[in-house]
């Protein structure tokens, strides 16, 4: 399992792996928003957390279709299916590797972009924290979509369409936790804890569904 994790990480960091593309996409999306809404700093600081969250959501969806596609193309997916360790565990490890390669850089890049958005320190910290807690959930539920779309010739766009509605709760609780941290009366902890609960829940059903879909689409 550790070997698989290391292998996936190495593959995604190498050129063409797409790990850095995700961060680049995230930065581009966030940088484009001010051109759309205008350079009003007050407005930007108010909607900044939401923009960062939406950008992170889109960026983590971007690389998802590659999660199983490359394995399918070179045939190693069949090996993963045949080995003795349960497929759910394998999928889980692959999700973790994918998250470390694409989700974690987003979290690290978010404070920098938060500065661009004229957000104060509390908001930046809260956004980074909620992204840290929320992006794994997106990866896990996205794995289900990637497993479903693995057999499709052009699955990439379809993965995003299928996964986005399922990722709405993560977005809602992530953004509301950030706003709860900024605006005093609302407590920060309840939405944040729900976000973590969603994370754990998706960590169960995402790999389960992805493993089922992979098995079904292989035979």
């Amino acid at each position: 399992m550790i070997a698989l994790l290391a292998r996936d990480l190495k593959l995604s960091v190498r050129a063409g792996g797409g790990a850095l593309i995700g961060v680049l996409f995230f930065m581009t999306v966030v940088a484009v928003i001010p051109f759309g809404v205008g350079p009003d700093l007050n407005l930007l600081s108010r909607i900044g957390p939401a923009i960062l969250w939406i950008g992170a959501l889109l960026a983590s969806l971007l690389g998802l279709d590659r999660l199983f596609q490359a394995e399918r193309e070179d045939g190693s997916l069949d090996l993963l299916l045949m080995q003795e360790t349960p497929l759910v565990l394998t999928v889980f490890v692959k999700c973790v590797a994918h998250w470390i390669a694409t989700g974690l850089p987003l979290v690290i890049a978010s404070p920098l972009l938060g500065l661009f958005m004229n957000m104060d320190e509390v908001a930046i910290g809260a956004t980074a924290l909620t992204l840290l807690a929320g992006t794994p959930a997106i990866t896990f539920i996205g794995a289900a979509g990637a497993g479903i779309a693995v057999a499709l010739p052009r699955g990439g766009l379809l993965v995003s369409i299928l996964v986005l509605p399922l990722a709405i709760p993560v977005l809602i609780f992530g953004v509301s936790a950030v706003y709860a941290a900024i605006e005093d009366p609302a407590p920060f902890l309840p939405p944040f804890l729900i976000l973590i609960a969603l994370n754990l829940f998706f960590a169960v059903i995402g790999p389960l569904a992805a493993a089922a879909a992979l098995r079904l689409s292989s035979d």
Partner: peptide
Amino acid sequence: RAAKVSAVLILVGFVNIPIIKFSVEWW
């Protein structure tokens, strides 16, 4: 194959609908 794979998606969606509904209400 389409049927099996979309069955997985239907079930994932079915599990998710209560969560979406609940989160949307909270939001």
